[in-house]
Design a protein around this nucleic acid. Structure first.
Lengths: 343, 343
DNA sequence: CTGAAAGCGCTTACAG
DNA sequence: CTGAAAGCGCTTACAG
């Protein structure tokens, strides 16, 4: 049983019969050192139950093994799957994430970024809140901390960005629904002021426009990107009897919410309105009816972001990355050809 | 625009015309200080863009604003909802979580606990991995770090525990199914060696036993507590044509997996087998058929655990808490009375 | 409140 | 490799 007194590098040095410099080198794999010496140090650390003090190391060296991860809302499966994959990637390289939900609060984002700097994180991953501006990241940029923005792009910000080709994804949905014969559409868009909402909506409308359906003919409402938001907004749309036969939702949890509204209000006729989402959550494949959607792959995003961050932490410089993965349409039961009698 | 040089308390002291001791006191709200002085310091911090260095503070004071949170798997909604609620609670009191997935790896748990100590966390929240033993927490206990175990209990560990009355939950499900007239049962239990799996199973069997159905007559298989595990194990059970009319799954994601297997194999007869889960995830209410389950309330657990941890961090000592929230049964469409023709 | 100084536990030159 | 020492940026006594 290790002694409960605090064990320092000096104790290890004494026990192993080496200098503290050597102990430090052994811990950090720096400098050359005989295998034998390294082992003596390792043994001493085990025997005494040494736990390295990252705070002290950080203070002196400036290097940190912590990374800040700010997501919009961890209870959205998209973000928890993302965070999970990212954590695995970081963990494999000796980093741990400090994680927090930003919500949709600009001030909280400022405050959290400050806290992360205070904790001395080596880098930052963030899903920027709607209406973020580049200056909010000044403190990060000045300190030259690796910073990866995810999903939502911040204009003018000199940071890496990894996301989805939202426009293309929206376009695929529009194209698909048009091909199925639909010509009256509704859209539940995401939060105003986010690039994701703007681009998905624009892509969707572009596809319709190519088919001769002008944007003005598409009923469109913004909504919180939550299940409740989707359900509530779908109810509003349905109550107005607007005669649309196809509904595009900004993401899957909103679509799932909308689907509940469709069931309730349209009853057995729920299948009369074609429904598509965005993200392809795990649950979307199993939903009844299984949901047509666009593959975002939070897992793949997490791996991508993790790999890029690790590269940056290893000193890989270069111009900021701006990468939008091309998404694929996943066609399932929730979309179907228009039959005239459904109108 | 703040200067990019690093700003220290000494700089603030100079700017505000006070001593560094006063700056420190202002930051930490310690000692008495005129409101005027406090404001002068605050102003100076704003002007110079001061960001406090938690590493230095931790090194000197031993106090930390980080908390370690180890969950089994963040991509399980139970844990992401828990983590989300816990984060909100911690954040409101100036703490941030370092978060990691343990998975089901005993060694990784050891390693992660060590890392957290190294990072100087003020306390720890952990969902212990199956087969955890108390000695694995020695390093935590010796350092007298507040430690809250969640969901799964570790025998002989002098740490707080907050979970569910798993036995009672399992019992409620058994009782409910018996009342519906079922007499042939199957169970997909959770991971072997966890208290949750053992207690939920025992409670379920106890209820059946009271109705005169001995445990030997209940087909029971263990499974990974994942959606895939649930689906796979349900397939195994269904292929054997064991004639059960009711299936109890260790948790909702397993039940959802099982539900998919029921749809596939039993086809339109999926409703012939009553299905119950445990946790009441958000998705369970919306599932088709909506899932009968036991209310775990990850959110409430997160709030509970957060509040207890904050209390401990504020120095509230006393014997370890051992709290099991009494869960409620949520009856929905997936369970129904046995009709003899379904056999 | 001030002011000067010690010290938390590391890492990092630096001379040998 | 060793050994002795400085210093990262705080907090904390301590004398005034």
């Amino acid at each position: 049983m290790p002694n409960s007194k605090k064990i320092t590098v000096a104790d290890i040095a004494r026990q192993a019969g080496v200098s503290v410099a050597t102990v430090s080198n052994a811990i950090n794999n720096t400098g050359r050192m005989s295998e034998q010496t390294r082992e003596r140090v390792q043994t001493a650390m085990k025997e005494l139950g040494f736990v390295r003090n990252y705070s002290a190391a950080k203070l002196r060296s400036g290097r940190s093994h912590l990374v800040g991860v700010l997501v919009q809302d961890l209870s959205n499966p998209l973000y928890s799957e993302f965070a999970s994959a990212l954590e695995a990637e970081l963990s494999a390289h000796g980093y741990m994430p400090i994680l927090a939900n930003i919500g949709e609060d600009l001030e909280r984002q400022d405050q959290l970024l400050g806290e992360l700097i205070g904790h001395g994180v080596a880098g930052v991953v963030v899903t920027p809140v709607a209406r973020s501006v580049a200056t909010q990241f000044d403190a990060i940029v000045q300190r030259q901390l690796p910073c990866i923005t995810m999903m939502r792009e911040v204009e003018g910000l000199a940071a890496d960005f990894i996301g989805i080709d939202d426009f293309h994804g929206g376009y695929l949905v529009g194209e698909h629904l048009v091909q199925l014969g639909h010509h009256r559409f509704a859209m539940i868009a995401g939060l105003e002021g986010t690039t994701t909402a703007r681009l998905r909506g624009a892509g969707f409308l572009a596809a319709l426009s190519e088919a001769g359906i002008p944007a003005e003919q598409v009923v469109s409402l913004h909504s919180e990107p939550t299940r409740e938001g989707g359900e509530l907004t779908a109810r509003k749309l349905l109550q107005q009897d607007l005669g649309f036969s196809a509904l595009f939702c900004h993401n899957d949890i909103m679509a799932i919410g909308a689907s509940v509204a469709l069931r309730d209000i349209a009853g057995i006729g729920a299948r009369k309105i074609a429904l598509a989402g965005f993200d392809n959550l795990e649950v979307s494949a199993m939903w009844q009816p299984s949901l047509t959607t666009v593959e975002t792959s939070a897992q793949a995003l997490g791996k991508d972001v993790g790999a890029l961050l690790i590269a940056r932490l290893n000193g890989e410089t270069g111009v900021p990355v701006r990468r939008r993965r091309k998404p694929k349409l996943v066609v399932r039961d929730s979309t179907f050809a228009l039959r005239e009698e459904t109108l």
